[in-house]
């Protein structure tokens, strides 16, 4: 189904690009210099300044670039992004290896991906 992948262009993670975002709830992907997704995250209801706070933490931890979506349904969208990544790569991003919940199975573009896989914890 079209529209479920996050396809926005990558933006360099910097104090300025973070400041340009509204302090809202949402989801994001972090990429390395090769534009490979290294982490999928969300800015939930406990972040002081929503996605800005979450991305500042990612910048502090060495994130290179990001793309983000603002949404109140950050939990389910976060899980959906994990499912898509699992579909495409048969593994979770390196930064999500501690994800403790089972990741669901999704058919995308007519292709069934991995069988149900218990994420490593």
């Amino acid at each position: 189904m079209a529209g479920i992948r996050m396809t926005k262009p990558w933006v360099a993670l910097s104090p300025d690009s973070i400041d340009a975002l509204p302090a809202q709830l949402g989801v994001y992907q972090i990429a390395n210099a090769a534009n490979e997704v290294t982490k999928i995250g969300y800015a939930g209801g406990r972040e002081a300044f929503g996605i800005r706070t979450a991305l500042q933490r990612e910048l502090d931890e060495g994130g290179v670039s990001f793309r983000a979506e603002l949404t109140h349904g950050y939990m389910t969208r976060f899980e959906e992004l994990l499912m898509i990544h699992m579909h495409d790569h048969n593994a979770l991003p390196p930064g999500n290896q501690d994800h403790a919940q089972k990741v669901g199975r999704l058919m995308i573009d007519g292709a069934n991906a991995t069988p149900n896989t218990e994420a490593s914890s």
């Binding site: 939990m75 389910t76 069988p115």
Partner: peptide
């Protein structure tokens, strides 16, 4: 069994219940 060929999860359906989605 959900691994039966032809059983396909087509999409996540987001609802007001933002903790869990339907499909």
């Amino acid at each position: 069994d959900t691994d039966t060929p032809g059983f396909n999860v087509r999409r996540v359906v987001h609802t007001l219940r933002s903790t869990h989605y339907a499909t």
